[in-house]
Nucleic acid binder design. Structure first.
Length: 289
DNA sequence: AGGTCGGCCTGGCAGC
DNA sequence: TGCTGCCAGGCCGACC
């Protein structure tokens, strides 16, 4: 499940490998990837374009091209981006070949390949023809970047104010803060000692501060560990991330809480598998059952 | 309008 | 052993 740290890891690795290179061929083998745009239309728009830069916004990968077009890619659940994979991996949905920097000796430089592998075919891509169109789209669906100045404690308090849904549902809402998914929501709530099912609007000022810090700490720990590879996620060279070995509560049902030793509980909140420590994250109301 | 839920999709695994 | 069926979940659209 690529979330902000996983996408950040991919972009940091891939950006220097593709920046300045030109898309020589674009093969879109799965029509769902570019839908509703037909694969041939997207391929035609991309071939011959030089990659200006690769960057991340939330969980999206943004390919910026020399003609002012932008390809916005989302890995969803299971997609990975591999650079020059050997041998050819399974579930290839898209294959891009990149030639050297445009110039007199471009042909002498070896071509490289970037492939999108996606067993479940949830991954998507969308083409934008201007920076303004791209920003409009992001503004409609994404809140602030967690590490940007706009994501403050005051902002978080305002974003959850008077909301009745569980705080975990709010963290998973990309319009509240961009890039947090199921893993990092659990880890952030544990760090903040906040129960995932607590109503968002019922958090105290102190808890909002802790949660703000918890989100940043969990995401930074994930980036430092180069992402979590529970099953599908891989680096662009096929190597696994290591954050799955450092989870504090996520996917640790029955194992001891690293802080108090109580057994971690698995439950469902906002329709998602959710892990928390009953000792450190007391439920909203004292319940006896 | 805020909140919840089902659909998308398939590999992997529990259970019979 | 082999088969069935269910779960995982980011995001979006349908619905209440």
């Amino acid at each position: 499940m690529p979330e902000l740290p996983e996408v950040e890891t991919i972009v940091r690795q891939l950006a220097p490998l593709v920046a300045g290179r030109t898309l020589a061929t674009v093969e879109i083998l799965d029509g769902r990837w570019s839908a509703p745009l037909p694969p041939v239309a997207l391929a035609k728009a991309l071939v011959g374009r030089r990659v200006e830069q690769l960057r991340r916004r939330g969980k999206y990968i943004v390919w910026e091209f020399d003609d002012g077009h932008y390809l916005v890619q989302h890995l969803r659940m299971t997609a990975v981006l591999l650079y020059d994979p050997v041998p050819d991996p399974p579930h290839v949905r898209v294959r891009l070949t990149l030639s050297g920097p445009s110039g007199s000796n471009a042909r002498r430089l070896p071509a490289h390949t970037v492939v999108v592998c996606d067993p479940r075919r949830f991954g998507t891509a969308e083409l934008f023809d201007s920076a303004a169109a791209l920003e409009r789209s992001f503004a409609a669906r994404l809140g602030p970047e967690p590490f940007a100045d706009a994501f403050t404690v005051a902002y978080l308090k305002r974003a959850v104010r008077a909301r009745t849904r569980p705080i975990k549902a709010a963290l998973l809402d990309q319009r509240v803060v961009a890039g947090v998914g199921n893993i990092y929501a659990d880890e952030a709530l544990f760090r903040a000692s906040v129960h995932p099912a607590r109503r968002a609007g019922q958090l105290s000022a102190r808890q909002c501060e802790s949660l703000h810090a918890g989100v940043l700490e969990a995401l930074q720990a994930g980036i430092d560990a180069r992402g979590a590879s529970i099953d599908d996620f891989r680096h662009v060279d096929g190597v696994r991330g290591s954050f799955q070995d450092r989870f504090l509560v996520h996917r640790r049902a029955g194992q001891p809480c690293p802080r108090c030793g109580a057994a971690v509980i698995k439950t469902v909140v906002a329709g998602r598998g959710t892990y928390y420590c009953p000792g450190c994250q007391p439920p909203p109301r004292a319940r006896r059952n």
